[in-house]
Nucleic acid binder design. Sequence first.
DNA 1: CGATTCGCCTCGCTGAGCGAGATATCGTCG
DNA 2: CGACGATATCTCGCTCAGCGAGGCGAATCG
Lengths: 155, 155
Amino acid sequence: MTPTDKSADGLDVVRQLRAVSTELDLLAAGFAQRNGLHPTDLRALVCLLDAARARTPVTPGSLGARLGLNSAGTTSLVDRLERLGHVRRTRDPRDRRRVLLEVDERAVALGEAYFGPLIAQVADAAAQLAEPELAAVRRFLASVLEGVTARREDG
Amino acid sequence: MTPTDKSADGLDVVRQLRAVSTELDLLAAGFAQRNGLHPTDLRALVCLLDAARARTPVTPGSLGARLGLNSAGTTSLVDRLERLGHVRRTRDPRDRRRVLLEVDERAVALGEAYFGPLIAQVADAAAQLAEPELAAVRRFLASVLEGVTARREDG
DNA sequence: CGATTCGCCTCGCTGAGCGAGATATCGTCG
DNA sequence: CGACGATATCTCGCTCAGCGAGGCGAATCG
């Protein structure tokens, strides 16, 4: 790449990506606040909805691990979500030490109200690209994801 | 859109974008924790570094507004950053009510240690695309940014 | 069956961030 | 110039998310 060609070194793309990322964070924070949720609660709901779609059972332990919380913090997180009616606690009949978390339909609706329009907008942006262009976007994003993940894992 | 054509409806791009966003958040959180910073502190440093590069003066008030903090919370945030030596308080000679925040060189170095490799990786990912492809990525990201920003503003 | 491990919860505490209000400075209008 | 309201920041007291330590029932291993 030529140092004089500013549009070809990808730095503007870096800026765009960062702007998108921070705007998404702000959007999420605003949504959380409007719904009486803390950022952690929203992240927890996202995990729960992902798991529900994948038919994967979630326990306080697995949720806390994924969010980086200790067991005490996880308990109070689940307490909050349960108090708001987003989640129910059920004893696992196979292993009665475990508690299974079931997301309420209201939480699913809430999640769709949040992600739905967002998904539609991104999908729409993607739909305005020709197929080979879309393929390039996919390759670029996959590459970024790989890089970020790799950086996160070693530190 | 036809549910059977999974590659053309852009949903996979949505998933990629979300994955990138959450990975970036996790990376930031890990970096913050390793450096004794809270997520808010890191966001504040990002704002300060951006402003420093743009030669824009920053006051506790403007910083708090940008981060969505109360004046009391802003004061304690600046106290923390000052205690860690990342920032210095200076009275504005033109308006002695105001306090100007100056970032320390250590904070700049810290920021570059964090953003540098990340920027390099994204720029590298961009460099592996042909020019028309890169243009498509730019258009896509601009479109996503516009959509997200618009959604955030009305709510 | 004990002994150990595992999963979750309770208790007490630290500290980020909020609301209310105090303090100092600035701009303005008589 | 002096009084007054606006503005920028800070202080005080509080709430509550999350941590560390420890407890208790359930599973597993010897």
